[in-house]
Amino acid sequence: MNDFQMVMASDPTVETVVDLLADLVAFPTESRSSNLDLVDLYAERAAAVGGTITVVPGEAGRANLHLRFGPDAPGGVLLSGHTDVVPAGSGWSTDPYVLTEVDGQLRARGSADMKGFLATALVVMESVDVDGLRAPVHLGLSYDEEIGCVGVHGLLDTLASNESCTPDIVLVGEPTSMRLCNAHAGKVACRIELAAAAGHSSRAATDPSAVHEAAALAVAIEDLNDPSHGVSANVGTLRGGIAVNVLAPTCTMEFEVRHPVDVDPDEVLADLLARVVTVDARLSAFGGHATTEEFIRYPALATDPEIKAVARVEALVDRGAPGPVGFGTEAGLYSDRLATPAVIVGPGDIADAHRPDEHVALDQLDRCIDVLRRTVDSFCINPETRGTP
């Protein structure tokens, strides 16, 4: 009997994962709404099998959760996921908050993004004899990821302040169809508020309009696009004005810039932000203003696939060399704050997320069970063979 077999208290099954997933998706944990019932259930089950529980309070009605299985010691692995989901919306053929199997697909909001991973991770840990772990398994659950990775910061503060929380690697379980990914773009999002004096539209040639000023800034933002360097810039919303014959007294614009790891977003934005200062000076002469507020920032990720811990996970996943994902994740934040390599791998396809009839396939959950079991074995049960960064 090998070490892995000795410390497995039971054999995790996809049926057990499905049962837990049904409980998790029944909580309508849309971003900015409470996730406390889900956190309570998850923590209660983890505590029942020897997990050490730390609830990190966040914004009203939300919380992050840190679980540790095994010794309070360096090394091991951290499995990460977010508890929030995007709004269900309309167009569903089944109840979005009741897990429903249709032709091998488990449909529900959050089934792929990313409660399927959360259910699998906990079921795997429920099957482990925690006393047999030689290095810790950490689980980190965040909130409000879907609105810009804004909720995880309190959790990262807690983890970073714990000297023994230094995992060899972080696995973020976003839906990648169980392919290993090691890179994603970073993002900065800002809101520009403009105000000017209302006036008759016949004075548009001489007096400022908040909408006109915003439109000129929008063109400048469009000019930030630089495909050759992997930079994309988009104005997402622009709202202002009160009537066609009135100089617009207010306008609000929101935009984002996405960038690769080798591009400094502050350098990309420097000229634009200086231009906003110039606009502010011009508007202030008419009793107005222009201000910029940053409301989302997360770093890009580019984890070196040659790091031993990454190479070990690549072998465990066994789906070829790691590559990038086309969406942002918390992996860059984990890597930055904990100074440890982070990768992305989880069940489900991102193409099936954020849409009606979101689903995860049963075979994806089964594959995730296998990968997480062998990851725990490699990094926490047989730590003498684990990869180190």
Rank of each mutant, 00 (worst) to 15 (best):
G348Y: 03
R239H: 15
A121E: 06
H138P: 06
V261P: 01
G50M: 12
A351C: 11
T166G: 02
M125D: 00
R134T: 01
L283V: 06
H289P: 00
I369R: 15
D226W: 09
L372M: 13
A205D: 08
R107N: 05
P383R: 10
V244P: 05
P28Q: 15
T166M: 05
D11S: 11
A248L: 02
T388Y: 12
D19H: 03
G70V: 12
G140S: 14
N225A: 13
V98C: 07
V277A: 15
G81F: 07
C190P: 03
D40P: 01
D23Q: 13
G346V: 02
E222R: 14
G58W: 07
S80Q: 15
G61L: 07
F27P: 04
H289E: 13
F4M: 10
V123F: 02
T206D: 12
K115Y: 10
D207H: 10
S31Q: 05
E30W: 01
V55Q: 07
A300S: 14
A281D: 14
E222P: 04
L372D: 04
T237P: 00
V85S: 08
A215P: 00
V17N: 02
T329K: 11
V7I: 15
T292S: 10
A135P: 06
V263L: 12
P265I: 06
P12I: 01
